[in-house]
Design a protein around this nucleic acid. Structure first.
Lengths: 221, 221
DNA sequence: AAAGTCCTTACGGCTTTCCGTAAACCATAA
DNA sequence: TTATGGTTTACGGAAAGCCGTAAGGACTTT
């Protein structure tokens, strides 16, 4: 079982529940933070002290407040930790239950577990900790088929950038100019049209409005 | 102070925190439910028994599961309660912090308090209960200016229907046919264009994609 | 009844997007 | 070097959307 666990969640009461369940699992050394930046610092400090954390349980969304953060979201935190601390186990504990998002996190960051907050959330979190301690991937019931679906989801950073620009109200021509300016490739109007077409097929969108609405819904932009 | 309080929230651990804070306020008679339908039934039963609840603290979003619900969201619950139990005080306790949404709830359903879940959520909830017991409206810090903003938000059901149709991928022409079919007025392509134009000005959107993205962001569709 | 206002509808010209075809470019392998 | 396959770019016609103008209808005011 894990020797040192960090819980990152900005909602006090949730945090409380997670700590309770963690203790009932026999985990002794548990710390909690309410900001991702604090989580990052604690984890770094653990490594420097020769007493590293071996499990992180984190939410995805953190409220913004007066404190400006280097890692405003759980995803930002996971991203940096995965490159700097590949050994650390990570369980995401979030309200988010969209398959695309879960699939994205697993494929991109190789997270070790994903538990949906909900009526059975704490139970499942308990199972997740057990599974992950045995090197097994754990997924909540409702997102368990995230990996089984055939949808490959081969969209890249360019696609996301493109979609975000559209959602901001730019025309395809403006985006083309912008991309040329910022040395983003491809940048021609034609390529942008082509890429949009691919995305529309992939997401079964009738038109560009629909496409942006869908991708906003599943949370990739 | 309140004699009988009902807390509706589907996340066990949140619920726990709310109960704790409620007890510390000296509230004795507190019940909790995880479904809006249960909340509705409990409130009805209280009235029938001659021992009605006088405060409801509820979340807005509830996870859907196998149980099919008549009132799937907190807003549905509030809507029905406001017509049937106008005396009941209602405090919304939600993660949602978009001003438009808060303003909508206050203007439409005359809720008595709105507290944002967050790092200071429980503290604010405590203040809210106190304020509401003195017949005062309470709003969390971060949404406190929801009512002061000049933005009048004069959008109606037609606008929302239109935006939803667009987000579903229909062309303006399709929507026009559809509206004629469903006897929605106005239904001409020209009127639809005009209304869209009005909305684009109102929300300062560059084009229709932008408009749909914005209105999705602020949660009105 | 006439005038005025607001809402709905119609229409035409213009821009943007859509979509298919084809050429240019580029890396790799024969 | 010459093929080859993939990606990027260019172009042109069709469709959809944008925007100003104006006509028609319903309703109120005088």
């Amino acid at each position: 079982m894990f020797k040192k666990v960090l819980v990152a969640d900005d909602l006090g009461s949730i945090n409380l529940g997670v700590l309770t369940i963690a203790k009932s699992l026999g985990l002794q050394n548990i710390e909690r933070v309410e900001y991702c930046d604090d989580a990052y610092l604690k984890i770094k400090k653990g490594v420097l002290d020769g007493d590293p954390f071996d499990l992180l349980i984190t939410d995805l969304s953190f409220k913004q407040d007066h404190r400006t953060q280097k890692y405003p979201t759980g995803e930002d935190l996971i991203k940096i930790l995965r490159t700097e601390n590949p050994g650390l186990k990570i369980i995401v504990y979030s309200i988010e239950d969209r398959l695309q998002k879960v699939r994205w996190l697993i494929n991109t960051y190789k997270i070790d577990g994903y538990v949906c907050k909900g009526r059975k959330g704490l139970e499942e979190l308990s199972k997740a900790v057990n599974a992950v301690s045995k090197e097994k991937l754990f997924l909540s019931e409702q997102v368990s088929h995230a990996l089984h679906e055939k949808t490959a989801l081969d969209i890249d950073d360019f696609d996301i950038l493109l979609l975000k620009n559209l959602a901001e109200g730019k025309s395809q021509e403006e985006i083309s100019y912008d991309f040329k300016d910022k040395k983003v490739s491809p940048s021609s109007l034609s390529s942008i049209e082509k890429r949009l077409n691919k995305l529309k097929i992939q997401f079964q969108a009738n038109n560009t409005i629909h496409l942006v609405a869908i991708t906003k819904d599943i949370g990739i932009i």
